[in-house]
């Protein structure tokens, strides 16, 4: 097991290298001159040249890439072209708000989503299923920005119960995590339901029922474990997406997170920030996948790692 984890972690290095190279090429292919953008509309050509050399963009591409790689190895991602603060600080400031928001959103949406999914599967085609799946479809189809605005209008503006924007207290987390989690809860509900419906038709469930086990034990003990595998996979994927920061939710709630940082960075062609963020997102996905793979083994002990 440990050996397996170690092997996976080593395998991480070439993947990240490849991602680093691709994203480096990609950002330099984007149209638009970052020096010109940073210098602003009133700048003269001499100023643009000054800004360019200040940002190190006057050097040949291979040298820029070497510098970037060398920096990454030394845990130095350079400074943001836009704010001139170290990229590590820029990302560090925003990582935790995004992380906590993701965690809270995932926590409630997984709990609610799985409950709805199980209830829908057990009472398939009866009213709990109808209600549950109506909710789920609404959750998927209702756009997050609209949900965010509606929630804010009701709970902040009209009722005055919750704060509008920011991330200062736990109360600030309620509306954004509801907004962010709505779609995830819906997806989880649908996944859980279909996975459970399949499992409940299996022979071993019939056997368990034939043994005279009560329905609750059949569902929770025999159904749950087996149904969880695809659900956990989906959970991992969703977690990864949310960790990338939701642009829409962060904009509406003015959340100091990574999604907005990425959008701002792309707008201003802030190469170092884009590169570091994409690397971070890839790393997050790889790690989450690893965790999901380990969870498989815990859920189903017949799975072996090599």
């Amino acid at each position: 097991m440990l050996q397996y984890i170690a092997k996976r972690l080593v395998g991480l290095v070439p993947t990240l290298l490849l991602v680093g190279l691709l994203v480096f090429l990609f950002v330099h292919l984007l149209p638009g001159d970052p020096a010109r953008l940073a210098a602003g509309p009133e700048a003269t050509p001499e100023t643009v040249a000054l800004v360019r050399s200040d940002l190190g963009l006057d050097q040949p591409l291979p040298r820029q890439f070497a510098r970037f790689l060398n920096g990454v190895v030394h845990w130095d991602f350079g400074t943001s072209l836009r704010t001139k603060r170290p990229v590590a600080t820029e990302i560090g400031d925003r990582f935790m708000p995004t992380f906590w928001l993701t965690l809270w959103s995932m926590a409630w949406s997984v709990a609610i989503g799985m409950t709805i999914g199980i209830l829908s599967a057990v009472w398939r085609n009866r009213w709990p299923d109808r209600v549950g799946m109506t909710l789920a479809v609404s959750g998927i189809s209702f756009p997050a920005f609209a949900l965010g605005m509606v929630l804010m209008q009701i709970f902040s503006v009209e009722l005055g119960w919750l704060p509008t924007v920011g991330d200062d207290t736990w109360r600030h987390y309620i509306l954004p995590s509801l907004t962010l989690g709505a779609a995830v809860a819906a997806i989880m509900a649908r996944f859980t339901r279909s996975s459970f419906v399949d499992i409940l038709g299996e022979d071993y469930i019939r056997t368990a029922r034939a043994k005279g086990l009560d329905e609750r034990r059949v569902v929770i003990k025999h159904g749950m474990r087996n149904a969880l595998i695809p659900v956990v996979t989906m959970m991992g994927l969703q977690f990864g997406f949310l960790l990338g920061g939701s642009i829409v939710v962060e904009k509406v709630f003015n959340w100091p997170g990574l999604g907005r940082l990425l959008v701002d960075a792309v707008d201003m062609r802030d190469y170092p920030v884009i590169q570091a963020l994409v690397l971070l997102f890839s790393l997050e996905f790889i790690l989450i996948n690893l965790i999901v793979d380990i969870l498989y083994g815990i859920i189903n002990p017949t799975i072996r790692y090599r």
Binding site: M152, S156, G160, P163, T164, V165, N254
Partner: peptide
């Protein structure tokens, strides 16, 4: 000085008195 990017959210802040 509070930067709030979204137009609607800025309007909401004004309405709540924040």
């Amino acid at each position: 000085w509070k930067p709030v990017v979204d137009n609607n959210s800025r309007a909401a802040l004004m309405q709540t008195g924040e």
